[in-house]
Structure formats: structure tokens, C-alpha cells
């Protein structure tokens, strides 16, 4: 009982390994976010089109993402693609594909929501001031859309980071996996290390997500 894993944490390069594990997870989320944002903006614009075909397609896409757990999508890509196409997708690449697929849909919906929330009279009153179409978008619509969009997309980043913890389930070595390895390696000397190590992992994730949540909330309050 006396040792709950704190000594293990400071033994050798264990802390460093945990942080590298966290970075492995964060890297996947950051890449996925960077892919999701531009694709999501495009998807969002497509979602506002009045074309029935794109309407149905984007709707189905969004519903799939909304209903299927990300774990299931991960399994489909990681195991299924290998099976069907005979290519061996690395776990990390599979994760990025799945999270981008998911993130694009979520981002798209946020963009759509932000776009349709701009009242029609904003366009009209800008037009009444003899602004050109480009000017209307540049000075009136886009700034307002961004104010709604930015806090929500920052929030999407924290969701992405939290979701990335799933990648250990398909074998990516990230912070949880590293934690397990450390606990396993020190089983003899510190049998109770699981408590401390997992508590640290818990706090590491919290430290990664909380500031971003706060920023998102701050911006939302400031701009609403």
C-alpha cells in the first residue's frame, strides 16, 4: 500500500515515456483535426446546398457517423480494409482515416449550423448598402460565421483528443499502452503502481483537454 506508483513514475525515463505516449495520441488527433477542418468546411457548405442528391448523401454520411461508435469504424477500417483489399493498413494510419472521417462530418455539421444561423436580413442589409457579393461575404457573413464556429470547432479538438484514446484498442502504442507496459515491468517491485500510473494518465489527459475547453467556453461567451 505504501507505494502507489509515484516512485515508479520517476524511475528511469518512465515519465518521459508516458509523455511520449501522450504525444503519440495527440499527434493522431492533431493530424485528424488538420484534415477535418478544411474538409469539414467544404462538407458544411455542400450541406447547405439545395441540391437533393447532395442533401441525401451528406445526411446519410452524417447519420452513419452519428450512430456508429468510433470503435466500430476503427475496426471496420483496421480489420475490414485489410481483409477486403488485402492491404495491411498500419494502425496509426487507420486511426487517422477514421478520425478524419468522423471529424469531417462533425465539423461539416457545425459549419452548416453556423451558416444557416446568419439571418437573411444580414445579407439583405449588406446588399442594401450596395456591397458586392464578395464584400458581403468578406465583411459581413464570414466574420459572423467564424464567431459561432471557432468556439465549437475548438471544442471538437477536445473531443478528438478524448476519442484518440481508443487507438490503443487496435494496438497503437500510446499513453495507456505505455502505462500498462510500465506497470507490467514493475509488477514485482511495486505491485500497486497501477493506481498512481493510471491516475497520472487521467491527469495528463485532463491537462491536455481542460485548457482547450476553457478557451472554447471563453470565446463562446465573449462572442455570443
Amino acid at each position: 500500500m505504501q507505494d502507489l506508483g509515484i516512485s515508479v513514475l520517476f524511475k528511469g525515463i518512465n515519465m518521459q515515456r508516458l509523455l511520449l505516449g501522450l504525444w503519440a495520441a495527440l499527434r493522431i488527433s492533431l493530424i485528424s483535426v488538420l484534415i477535418s477542418i478544411p474538409l469539414g468546411i467544404l462538407t458544411g457548405i455542400v450541406m447547405t446546398l439545395r441540391n437533393p442528391v447532395t442533401k441525401v448523401l451528406t445526411r446519410v454520411y452524417l447519420e452513419i457517423v452519428r450512430i456508429m461508435p468510433q470503435m466500430v469504424l476503427l475496426f471496420i477500417v483496421f480489420f475490414g480494409v485489410t481483409r477486403v483489399f488485402g492491404i495491411n493498413l498500419p494502425a496509426e494510419l487507420s486511426s487517422i482515416i477514421v478520425f478524419s472521417f468522423w471529424g469531417t462530418a462533425e465539423m461539416g455539421d457545425l459549419v452548416r449550423g453556423a451558416l444557416i444561423s446568419i439571418p437573411k436580413h444580414q445579407y439583405e442589409s449588406a446588399a442594401a448598402l450596395a456591397m458586392s457579393k464578395a464584400q458581403i461575404y468578406l465583411y459581413i457573413i464570414i466574420p459572423q460565421t467564424l464567431r459561432r464556429l471557432v468556439p465549437l470547432s475548438i471544442n471538437l479538438i477536445t473531443r478528438m483528443i478524448k476519442t484518440t484514446s481508443l487507438v490503443m484498442m487496435i494496438g497503437v502504442v500510446e499513453v495507456l499502452k505505455v502505462a500498462q507496459q510500465i506497470i507490467e515491468a514493475n509488477r514485482k517491485t511495486s505491485p500497486n503502481a497501477a493506481f498512481g500510473i493510471f491516475a497520472v494518465v487521467f491527469l495528463l489527459y485532463f491537462t491536455a483537454c481542460w485548457p482547450i475547453s476553457l478557451l472554447s467556453r471563453y470565446l463562446e461567451k465573449k462572442w455570443s
Binding site: 477536445t158 478524448k162 484514446s165 481508443l166 490503443m168 495507456l176 493510471f198 487521467f202 489527459y205 485532463f206
Partner: peptide, 10 residues
């Protein structure tokens, strides 16, 4: 601000 997976492990 933490994933369920990490909560469950803890």
C-alpha cells in the same frame, strides 16, 4: 475532459 477509456482503466 478525460476519455471514458482512461476513467475505466483507473
Amino acid at each position: 475532459n478525460t476519455p471514458l477509456l482512461v476513467q475505466l482503466f483507473f
